[in-house]
Structure formats: C-alpha cells, structure tokens
Nucleic acid binder design. Structure first.
Lengths: 236, 236
DNA sequence: AGATTGAAGTTGCTACTGTCAACATCTTTT
DNA sequence: AAAAGATGTTGACAGTAGCAACTTCAATCT
C-alpha cells in the first residue's frame, strides 16, 4: 500500500478548487456535486468537508475564483486601449467575452446567495475607467457611481441574455453588439457633459470631483429633470 | 374511504403549476423539488410524472408562466404612460419591479436551459414601445431591434444585479435608478436622432422604417463610426 | 348491460446526493 | 516517545429523480 497515493493529499484544497472550476464549467451549478469534485481529485467523498463547511461554501470559493479571473480578463482586454473611453469599452467586451467563455462559472458568480462583497475588485476596475472617461470629458462630471452601475448593468444584461440564448446573435456578433452598445452609451452620455467647459488645462484637476453626491451640471440636469436620481449613498 | 379526496384529482396539472409557482417563489430553483410540489398538491410523489416528463419540463412550464406574468406587469405599468418614451420607461420599471418581487421565479425564467423562444411576447411589448419612441423622434430611425436589445440588456442587467445584491440600493432606490437609467438611455439616444428632420407631418409614415438593416442617419453614423454594428439578421 | 381500454394516481424500488459520526493515518508539538 | 491535531476514510441516514409495476376509475365498444 505504497503504490497508491499517500494518505494525505498534500494540497487538497487547491486541487478541489481546480476540479471544481472544471466541473462547474462542464455541468453548471445544477448538476454540480461535491462527490464528483472529490472523485476528480481522487479522494473520498467526505474529504472536501475538511476544507469547506458545505457545498455552498465550496461554490462561494469558486465564485471568488471566478471574480479574480473576470477582473484579470477585464484588465487584459482594456490594456490595449489608449484612452479612457477605449479602455471602458474594451473592459465591457472583456466582461462579456468572459461570460460567454465560461457561462456556467458566470452563473455561480452571480446567481447564488453570496455573503460579502465579492466582485469588489471587478467593480473598482470599471469605476477607474469611468473616472478616466470623466476626466477626458467624455462622461458627465459628478459622482461616478451611477454611471458605473449603469454601464455595469448594460454589459451584465448583455452577458446574461446572451448566455441564456435570448440575443439573436452568435458569440461573435454578441461581442460586436457589446462594442456598439458601449459606444452608444458613452456617446449618448457625452451629450450631457459639462456645458461651459474650458477646452483644455482641466486634466490636472485630478480626482476632485469624486464626491458622493450625484451632481449633474445644470444643463444635463435640465435634461434629466424628470427623474433626478438621488445621491449614491453609502455605497456598500 | 370516501372521506379522503377522490382517487383522481380532477385538474392536477394546474394545481401542480400553482404549487410550483409558490414553491419556486419561496425556495428558488436550487431547493425546488418535484416531491414537495406533489406534497403541496396533496398527491403522491410520482403523480407529477403523468403531466411533466421530468423536473426540467415542470420548471420550463413555470418559466412560461413567469413570462406571461412579466408581460402582464410590463403592460400594466406602461399603461399609465402618455407618450411612447413614457411607456418605454415605465415598461422597464415594470420589468425590474417584477424581478424584485419574484426574484426566484425570475431566476427560473432565464438561468435554466430553455428550448424554444419563450419570452417572445415580452420582447414584442418592448419592441412596440421602441418603435413608438422612434416615431416620436425620440430615438434614431432604422432597425429597432438593436435599440430594443440594448434597452432590454440595460434593465435586465439592473434586475439581475439588484437581485444578486450587487447594487448598493434597496428595492425602492433600485426602481428610481431604473427610471433614471432609462431616461438616460432615451435622452442619450435622442442626441443621435435624424438630423435633417422636418419637424412635423412625419407621424404618418407609419412603420416604413422597420427594415431589417441597421441604417443610422449619416450624422449618427459619424458618431457611431468606430463600431458600425451590422445588420440585425434573422431575429430568432 | 358488461367487458375492455387507457388515462391518472399509487407504491416500491434503485441509484445518487449532502452531511453527520466514528474511525484511521500522518504531522507536529510537547 | 507520547499526546494532540489535522487530514482523509468508511459507514450510515434522510432526501431526491426517475423507473416499473400495480390500482382506480371513467369512457368507449360491442
């Protein structure tokens, strides 16, 4: 009894995570089973319970892993952009591309009861590009959160609808649609940017405008007057 | 043995659907169980198999039911709008409101493998308001499908993110945010509407512009030039 | 009428799952 | 060296999806 694997696996936890990522990618959350993960890691059906309290905790770990991959994908895609709006657009494409490549994993990340604020990093990445675009004057000044949440909602909706087969496009065209929609978002918002805008020498006013109140310029506000979306209070 | 219920239930199928709707609303797709549905309908654990081939078929029936309710909600909300853009905005709010009220049911409708084109009616409703808004001149002319899909993606993303707890708002503010985002969508798109636009006497050219090609005006196209999202081919 | 057929509901079974409890093995600390 | 603790295993239990064989009952066909 030495030819078989040793009694202790060594680093079972990461092996379980790897097997879990593979399994979730194959069968999705419905058919996902702790016992199959254990099987793939070559270990008894109860070994995982030494590393995860229960099934949900394992799934949550997979979600955390997924968000790390997602953030990496967004950063990688946006890396080739030269302006803030370029990066913003590419970031959205990376988001959708990730969702299309690992739809089941994407499911686990969002459609299961999670606890804390997983996915915080992904949102920060998006927020960063939003702020950049604001500084370039491509997006209206003020609290960037509503804009970021709107952009996020847009690409998230595209991703989910595409995955569930509700967009009449194949993967290829979904990405083109994402790019188009992102451009439409930015260009649409651009029309609401600060009216009296000194055309230059404003790039230096770094992050002064990151207050926590949604403060549209009067011109934009006159357009948005019917809604007046209130302050973004106490995000998270 | 007459005091107990009769051997044949009468209309078990609809009773199962009712119990299923209730159950899915309580526990979600994960904990959803055919046997519990049977229990609630006061029937043996295998009776449902006379009406649904398997669990997925029952869930799909629930999804169909959900889409009917969703469409009804959208129509009810938009009923109080006076213009096309009003109805479009309210329609989006109805969508999100429905998702927030029955998040688990909403899950079943989109995140399970479905077969055919369920939800066709809901999309047609949205498309109708998009076309109306185009006729009012509030949205750019041309194929309404990309616009409808973008609007749908936006509200769908808001709904999903809100349900999964990724929007920093409570239900109340989520609806306000939806309203704001919808207004931003329309007003943003409005800036791309036909440039040389005879201000009146165009409401009569009814649905002439419902071609299947995405045909932006030259002005809008110059703004969208970097993407050139192609024709919407063979929707569904 | 009386027999037959077939739909609708039931009971019992198998294979599988999540999770608990008790046990085995190996490492680390004392 | 011995105790302790962490890690992995075996065996159980309750619950589930679905199959097969049985029962009830209404409708149809002589």
């Amino acid at each position: 009894m030495r030819a078989t694997h040793p009694y202790h696996h060594g680093n079972l936890k990461s092996a379980l995570l790897d097997a879990g990522v593979a399994l979730i990618g194959e069968v999705g959350p419905q058919a996902f089973t702790i016992r199959e993960v254990a099987r793939r890691a070559g270990v008894s059906h109860n070994a995982p319970y030494r590393h995860f309290r229960n099934k949900d905790e394992l799934l949550e770990a997979l979600a955390v892993d997924g968000f790390a991959r997602l953030t990496a994908a967004m950063r990688k895609w946006s890396g080739s952009g030269s302006t803030g709006t370029d990066r913003l657009r590419l970031c959205g494409c990376g988001y959708v591309d990730f969702a299309l490549r690992w739809p089941q994993h994407f499911l686990v990340m969002f459609d299961l009861p999670k606890d804390g604020s997983v996915g915080e990093n992904a949102f920060q990445t998006l927020l960063e590009f939003i702020v950049e675009s604001q500084q370039e004057g491509a997006l209206p000044k003020g609290d960037p959160h509503p804009l970021a949440l709107m952009a996020w909602s847009l690409v998230h909706g595209i991703a989910k609808l595409a995955i569930s087969g509700n967009l009449p496009y194949g993967s290829r065209r979904v990405l083109e649609f994402t790019e188009w929609a992102s451009a439409a978002f930015v260009n649409g918002m651009e029309s609401l940017k600060q009216a009296a805008d000194p055309p230059g020498a404003r790039r230096k006013r770094k992050l002064k405008q990151r207050e926590t109140t949604w403060n549209l310029t009067s011109e934009a506000e006159s357009i948005f007057r019917r809604v007046r979306f209130p302050v973004s209070r106490k995000m998270q």
